[in-house]
Simulated assay, not measured.
Amino acid sequence: MNTVQQSPTQTKPTVDVSMVVANFNNGRYLDEFFRSILCSTVLPREIIFVDDGSTDDSLVIAQRAAEDVKCMKIIALPKNVGFANALNAGVANSVASYVMRMDPDDILLPTRIERQYDYITRHGLDVVGGNALIFHSSTGASIGSTNFPSDHSDIEKTIVKGENGVLHATVMGRTAFFRSEPYKQENVPAEDYDIFARFLKRGASFGNFTEPLIRYRIHDTSASARLRYSTILRTYQLRDSIFGGHTPRWKVRTYYWFIKCYRNYLDSRSVVSKYVWAGLSALCYPQKLVRKIARHVAYRPGR
């Protein structure tokens, strides 16, 4: 590891990672986001902050944060070009061996960079993701956690059947893959499934941390809060195109309603409504619901 000047009074080690952040009008979350980076046990070689034509105070906040986050490069796009295109701009300007994804409305956990970099280099993997603690933006209350498979064979099975095998906002992967298989704007908001399915098709090896790496924010404008049937449909269409086969519409609808019911289960404040939504979710995908609830209980605050 090298060292980078973080502030006039403090230095931290760095690792060979380019953190790529695409931002559009997330100004209200950026101070907390940048504080989480400063609390990290190690820093990336560089942070590439791509502002995708924001109309709020995002650029002002990022420029102010850059006084403390010395490794940050700011790319200010003159107009909004879209999430995938903004990420590609960040990757194109990266210089490290690995690209690390992070969304500016989430919070980095202190050991994420250090542990993930050690894991991906020690095991010789191409892509490593992890889990996330999910919380409500308005209340700060924890509402659950993700439960992604940990080893390559299970991740492969998950992706091939049309589901996300890694959580996009937690991924660290070889820069060479991100350059050879860039994001496709036309596939947003299913761009995450698309790019990692193409990585897999090209022979990438995957892994996931069992432990959470970020705090994942749910708010009114987040992609998670605005899930549409068209997104699930597009995901399965990509699956069929990349891996072959045909996914029947009933399966698409079933998986869509499983996710909708499960998110209502997480959002519910009363025990009765939780049981109702859990029951409806179980009707759609019983095995997956059991795994998700078990994960939720395992990471419940106070345990």
Results as ranks from 00 to 15, higher is better:
60 V>A: 14
55 T>R: 15
65 A>R: 11
141 A>I: 11
55 T>N: 10
122 R>P: 00
81 V>G: 06
160 V>N: 06
67 E>V: 08
55 T>Q: 15
163 E>W: 06
149 P>E: 13
102 M>V: 05
146 T>C: 07
162 G>H: 09
58 S>L: 05
101 R>S: 07
61 I>M: 03
165 G>W: 04
160 V>I: 15
148 F>Y: 15
92 A>V: 02
113 I>F: 06
163 E>Y: 09
98 Y>R: 02
91 V>Q: 08
156 E>R: 15
131 N>H: 09
167 L>R: 07
67 E>H: 13
105 D>N: 13
114 E>Q: 15
75 I>G: 04
90 G>M: 08
162 G>P: 01
156 E>G: 03
145 S>D: 02
98 Y>N: 08
118 D>F: 04
113 I>M: 08
61 I>P: 00
99 V>D: 07
68 D>M: 11
94 S>Q: 02
117 Y>H: 15
142 S>I: 12
87 L>N: 07
170 T>M: 07
110 P>S: 14
104 P>C: 12
84 A>V: 05
87 L>M: 15
168 H>Q: 08
107 I>S: 04
117 Y>N: 05
137 S>N: 14
89 A>S: 10
119 Y>S: 00
119 Y>C: 08
147 N>S: 15
70 K>N: 13
109 L>I: 09
146 T>G: 02
55 T>E: 14
131 N>A: 12
133 L>Q: 03
100 M>P: 01
59 L>S: 09
104 P>F: 06
102 M>S: 13
58 S>C: 10
52 D>T: 10
79 K>I: 07
133 L>W: 03
105 D>H: 12
168 H>L: 12
157 K>R: 13
64 R>V: 05
160 V>E: 11
139 T>M: 08
138 S>L: 11
95 V>H: 12
90 G>L: 09
64 R>W: 02
99 V>N: 12
143 I>H: 03
69 V>S: 12
150 S>K: 09
141 A>N: 04
102 M>R: 02
98 Y>I: 04
64 R>P: 00
172 M>A: 07
102 M>T: 01
175 T>Q: 12
52 D>Y: 08
62 A>L: 11
124 G>P: 02
50 V>H: 01
140 G>N: 12
91 V>P: 07
103 D>W: 01
122 R>G: 02
95 V>M: 10
51 D>N: 15
117 Y>V: 02
111 T>N: 15
109 L>K: 05
155 I>V: 13
110 P>F: 13
149 P>Y: 11
106 D>N: 15
175 T>P: 01
170 T>Q: 05
62 A>H: 06
85 N>E: 13
160 V>D: 02
86 A>H: 05
112 R>P: 00
62 A>K: 09
155 I>F: 14
120 I>C: 03
135 F>D: 00
